[in-house]
């Protein structure tokens, strides 16, 4: 939440500064298999966010006392590159924010990955934010889900994430950095689309009960479009080759 002083006007006649309506997403593109050495990987451009997600494993869980004889464990590293912001050079290494985001990202995947198939192993998820412009944890989860699918590790569904927020009294979707700085609420949510189960939810600011309900329904509506981009990216490597020989 930014200060209320010098607050720019973020909505004019129902349109946001970049021309979007309240429920519109920024443009989302996903490119599969960008990291050769990973089991699965994906590069996402979500608005001005540029993020690489990759999955390694399953491999022997280390250190050994971390291993669970019943299921695989997931480790996650979310990190912002020091050159990712338009402002000052960022500090390298994990901080409290990145450690928390790593944890909630890991928990999203613990819900959908079929961990019981790989006892005693670990699966690593890496989310590297190369350029950030608001909503990086949601974009990172969305990309990591594509990477996980491409790795061949079985999962019950492909989760997506997006955040809802509030500008003045209007509930909006997918805020960029500027909007986020001056918004009245921010709520990143990850969803399992098969049954619309909520896998991640964080929120700060202020929502009435009605606004929360509206935000959730805006998220699940937008989820269909996000899922489509994810699926397209997952199918792309295989369909490209099929098309090549159908001509």
């Amino acid at each position: 939440m930014g200060s209320t002083q010098d607050k720019p006007q973020l909505m004019i006649n129902g349109k946001r500064l970049d021309g979007r309506g309240p429920a519109d997403l920024r443009s989302i593109k996903i490119e599969p298999n960008v990291v050769k050495n990973a089991a699965g990987s994906a590069y996402i451009e979500w608005g001005k966010n540029k993020i690489i997600a990759a999955v390694h494993g399953p491999k022997e869980a280390l250190p050994k006392h971390f291993a669970d004889p019943e299921r695989a464990i997931i480790k996650c590293r979310y990190m912002m590159a020091p050159f990712s912001s338009l402002e000052e050079h960022g500090r390298t290494g994990p901080n409290r924010r990145s450690i928390e985001i790593s944890k909630v990202t890991k928990e999203v995947f613990e819900n959908v990955v079929m961990l019981e198939l790989f006892p005693n192993t670990e699966i690593d998820i890496f989310v590297e934010v190369l350029q950030g412009d608001g909503g990086t944890r949601a974009a990172g989860i969305t990309a990591a889900a594509v990477a996980m699918a491409l790795s061949g590790i079985p999962m019950t569904d492909i989760p997506y994430a997006v955040s809802a927020g509030k500008i003045g009294d209007t509930v909006v979707l997918d805020m960029d950095k500027l909007e986020d700085n001056y918004s009245d609420a921010d709520m990143p949510v990850a969803v399992k689309p098969l049954d619309n189960e909520i896998l991640l939810l964080q929120m700060d600011g202020s929502f009435t009960k009605e606004q929360l309900k509206q935000a959730i329904s805006m998220i699940t509506d937008a989820g269909k479009a996000i899922r489509e981009v994810q699926e397209k990216a997952i199918r792309k490597p295989y369909e490209q080759i099929i098309e090549k020989y159908q001509k």
Partner: peptide, 15 residues
């Protein structure tokens, strides 16, 4: 193989 059942319907778990 490689499927899961939710509410009586069958879904894939893999690509």
């Amino acid at each position: 193989q490689n499927s899961t059942v939710i509410n009586g319907k069958t879904y894939s778990t893999i690509v």
